[in-house]
Design a protein around this nucleic acid. Sequence first.
RNA 1: GCUACUAUGGCUCAGAUGGUAGAGCAGCUGAUUCGUAAUCAGCAGGUCGCCGGUUCGAGUCCGGCUAGUAGCUCCA
Length: 646
Amino acid sequence: MSVKVSLKGDIKEFDKGTSVAEIAKSIGAGLYKAACAGKVNGNVVDLRTPITEDCQLEILTFSEEEGKKAYWHTASHVLAQAVKRLFPEAKLAIGPAIDNGFYYDIDLSRPLTQEDMPKIEAEIKKIIKEGLSIERFELPANEAMELMKEQNQTYKVELIAEHASNGEAISFYKQGEFTDLCAGPHLMSTANLKAIRLTSATAAYWRGDAKNKALQRIYGIAFPKTSELEEYLERIEEAKKRDHNLLGRQLGYFTTVDYIGQGLPILLPNGARVIQLLSRFVEDEEQRRGWQLTKTPYMAKSDLYKISGHWDHYQDGMFVLGNPEKDDEVFALRPMTCPFQYQAYLSKPRSYRDLPLRYNETSTLFRNEASGEMHGLIRVRQFTLSEGHLMCTPQQLEDEFKNCLDLVIYMLNTLGLYEDVSYRFSQWDPENREKYIGTQEQWNEAQGTMERILKDLDIPYVIGVGEAAFYGPKLDVQIKNVHGKEDTLITIQIDQMLAEKFGMEYVDADGTKKHPYIIHRSSIGCYERTLALLLEKYAGALPTWLMPEQVRVLPISDRLIDQAKKVEAKLSISGVRVTCDTRSEKIGYKIREAQLEKIPYMLVIGDKEVEEGTVSVRSRKDGDLGSMLVAEFLAKIQQEIVTKAK
RNA sequence: GCUACUAUGGCUCAGAUGGUAGAGCAGCUGAUUCGUAAUCAGCAGGUCGCCGGUUCGAGUCCGGCUAGUAGCUCCA
């Protein structure tokens, strides 16, 4: 009995039951050694999988995404094995491959510290050297349960219990003395691993629930070549140099003060300037697109939040002024603008002719984040959001949603961040009903509408179950910081619940009263976070139109200060943000400082320039551009500013 | 909130085993007047995050708090 296997176009015959690994071996020893997993008719399989029928087969190596995952998954098992050897009492939880390496969550008698890492790494190297072959076996659920109970692996027992109901056998992988519950796939031997580095050890809750026990999570990364590992680590180090939390402080964008408090950054002149530029740009663009600016209070009585549902669903996140138990009147700082802008809608009776009604606001919000959440400018307790709420009829919803998305994409393109974002369709979690308002039907309808729109626009997205707002589904624009941590930059939400709660209505053409659909949306996100990501994206060298200081005039000697000042004045009067470095320093020194501050253009003024009425232009990215007339330079930089060139 | 780490002049960092603070850069003063990433010299600057404890003596050891960092949880 033989099977026909199509390998990259070639069809080869093998005995029925030949494993993927053996097929790889028949192609070449090199491929066999590099093989991480197989792909049969598009499905990723373990190398040990027997081929029992004609199929398309691909051998996956580390260069393929799924191959990498198998490689890292095996690395996580070796990590667990090493920890087990050093801490025999360790209980294993889960150890998956992730986008950048792998981790293993382990219950240990004590937390790990940085000193433990080299010891674990040394043990890992030993295990790799031992070249333990990795074997797969299956057990019926009850026997699997017994095996894990014997080893006192309570977390595994819990996992098996969940799988037991579907009647399938439970698979294990064994290498040397170490056996782990695992679906695979895995490499054939620990010897196939090469360069492993443990990157950090932190705590992580069992099953990601803060109510559960905190386990020790060890993160690591692995590569088939030492040089690749070194390159990776170097890349990480380079990325960290772009960290806004470092650059933003160094370059005078923001600072923090311990006695002001966590998550309450001071925006220094540079930071405040960029945010001013961004918000002007946003408000102008929104006006062009039919949005009307409102300015609403920063706080309200609890009564308002009781109507909106924030009091019941968001109180932990709010700064409440006063004691709800004792005081007659309790206020709270606003965590969102929605209920305030709705009052503008409610200020008079509305007709379908008024819709769509678009309100925008540059709105400062206050959210009482848990103390461990704050991070530079990315996660703070007071921030300013480019916010808006749009009231429309069901017929208008789709077009208006698309318009909102178009605005978002326009903003992202202008900032140069479009290529760095991904979309997340954030849905509710029906298992967790108490977190949300509204009925199953309302959620199905709102989510169905959003899904239809996204499909129609052909937007690629991932689904985030349980990521919805308490009042409706969201389309979140996600972005990663230099550490690879993902955050929401911008969001567009569909809400059909709050209009009803607030009694927002419009009189339709047929004379009946109806509740409008509401779109909650941001256009450029919150300014602090967007600034942070811009600083990281451009390593501090923001596009010229956004730079707090666009030009610095550098006289070569004190004799030329007057002339330099004239150039400064000429540019300044034309709206260019320019300064003049009048210190008695050498030109090389002045240039070095301007360069380190990422000033887009340095204008060197010497005798020659004064004589010719020119300036010697140096760009931060292209160096010396030679000399040109002041008017020429002005035209050049104005062009760059108007087009918002990146 | 949880786990780990960190906190020394404006910034970056030294200060084994507890004996009363040191450098570079920045700043100030003077000299230098210079052509595309650091001119030279001098001066000044710190109750070592805060509170408490141990000790004859604490930057150093212990506890608490505050803030910062990474991760978890939570979220724009």
